[in-house]
Write a protein that binds this DNA or RNA. Sequence first.
DNA 1: ATGTGACTAATAGTCCGTT
DNA 2: AAACGGACTATTAGTCACA
Lengths: 77, 77
Amino acid sequence: MDIRKRIGLNVQRIRRARGWSQEQFAFESGLHRTYISGIERGARNPTVTVVKDMADALGVTPAALLEYETASAETAE
Amino acid sequence: MDIRKRIGLNVQRIRRARGWSQEQFAFESGLHRTYISGIERGARNPTVTVVKDMADALGVTPAALLEYETASAETAE
DNA sequence: ATGTGACTAATAGTCCGTT
DNA sequence: AAACGGACTATTAGTCACA
């Protein structure tokens, strides 16, 4: 599991738990809508300041976005 | 506490716990010596893949490098 | 409401040094 | 052993038009 994909999954899971669309989350985090899209798909390799911005908007710690307990499947590493 | 400084402190603490110099750590992680220096000083804004590389070399999770429990002082946020 | 390719400005990351 | 600087290339940040 690539760390970019892991972050993408974590962001998407928490964003959906907030009931937000990517556009709403983009507004909350101050990032661009298409950039969020790229992150959730694991297509981007964000810097830690971007991780911090997203974590702040989602109300979680930056570390939480890097963790691997998606509760569900985490077979491959 | 800026997230870059937090990472720098975490990296430095764990690296020293391993008994490694910056040069040794640079070799182990495959990153450049001067770059490690900049990261530990909080002067750099690494990408998540670099965080992963450092975490792997140090034998910790990437999330561990972003956490704020340095056990000691963590007054300012 | 989201995925994607392409694009420019900024900066990540390397390599040469000196202190 | 480590901080720091300058210059350099590769890659990211951030945005857009469009599917």
